[in-house]
């Protein structure tokens, strides 16, 4: 299967997950929001969000069992840069109320102008960042 076809099918599975979480539990499948909620929520809500995150983490090993190979990963930054990037992603996604899943998939799927503004901003910022990295390299 070509990279683009597996990308589209993988994306369709992500969309299915987003759709089902809304149709069954009435929740937006935004990963940054769900993960942050684990540290804040109490009771059943915390368990339900924890179950989603546990399923998410189980995805790659189940994929490896089914296909015989783990998904490819090539890291692009040394550990100190990953540390800074992690801080930026954690703080930025909370300040901006979402990430690639909550704004990018769920937000665009419900035609939210606020999410579209967020998506264009983080795409623009990401593109500018990589262009700068390439220019400096």
């Amino acid at each position: 299967m070509s990279t683009y076809a597996s990308g589209f099918l993988g994306g369709a599975l992500i969309g299915l997950s987003v759709a089902l979480l809304m149709l069954l539990n009435g929740r937006i499948a935004g990963i940054s929001g769900l993960v942050a909620g684990l540290g804040r929520d109490r009771g059943l809500r915390r368990w339900v969000d924890g179950a989603f995150v546990a399923g998410l983490i189980a995805g790659p090993p189940v994929f490896a069992l089914a296909t015989g190979a783990w998904p490819a990963m090539r890291f692009v930054a040394p550990l100190p840069v990953l540390l800074v990037a992690g801080l930026l992603v954690g703080f930025g996604t909370r300040l901006g109320s979402g990430c690639t899943s909550g704004h990018g998939v769920a937000g665009l799927a419900r035609l939210s102008a606020r999410s579209l503004a967020a998506v264009l901003t983080f795409l623009g910022s990401g593109i500018l960042t990589v262009a700068t990295l390439r220019a400096l390299a």
Partner: peptide
């Protein structure tokens, strides 16, 4: 906050190739 947060997120995303999911 929406635009500033998204801009910071994009910076970290571009540096690392990682987003939360």
């Amino acid at each position: 906050p929406l635009i500033g947060g998204a801009a910071l997120f994009g910076l970290g995303w571009g540096l690392s190739g990682f987003c939360p999911g």
